[in-house]
Amino acid sequence: MMQAKRVRVNPFKRPYVVLMMEVIGRSLEAASQVDERIQNEVRPLPDGLMFEMKVMPDGPALVLQKTGATGLKYLGRRPPRKPDVVMKFKHVTHAFLVFSFQEATARAFANDRILLDGEIAYAMKLVRCLNRMESLILPKIIAERALKRYPNLSLPEKMLGGARIYTQVAKNLIRG
């Protein structure tokens, strides 16, 4: 039998996706603690709702859970139970395209790179949280690539919003 030929793969792709999953998880947690618009999106979600973003079949992942009235808590890489809403990238390359801002999240959905499992209405709220967080923490030139439309943010709103999220991430890390 012929052996499958070893091919070269980008050695940074998978670690980068792992890192970005962590960054997104922690940033969303922090953003839900300081940004009112994200809090308004989280508020109607059921208490304890668990959200997982992962690469299929068993790749890098992040897990968030609703805590309190408006908070999202980052639970790490493995869900303690079956999550309520799962956003699954079909391949690590597809996650890399999105996380390296070569493909917007909405474009990834349109290109069938992502599967959604669970209540769609909750998933849409979480996608809006992700978009809002990206619009605040990413430089405009990068956020424009990640979003379908860059929102009308004033410079102070963007600077202050981004700074508050970064500060909150740091605080959460120190607190453990």
Binding site: A106, F109, A110, L116, I120, A121, A123, M124, K125, V127, R128, L147, K148, R149, P151
Partner: peptide
């Protein structure tokens, strides 16, 4: 309407 899954495929962003 914002919570409907089809909105993500609209060619123009909708808030």
């Amino acid at each position: 309407a914002l919570d409907d899954g089809s909105i993500i495929f609209n060619p123009v962003e909708v808030d």
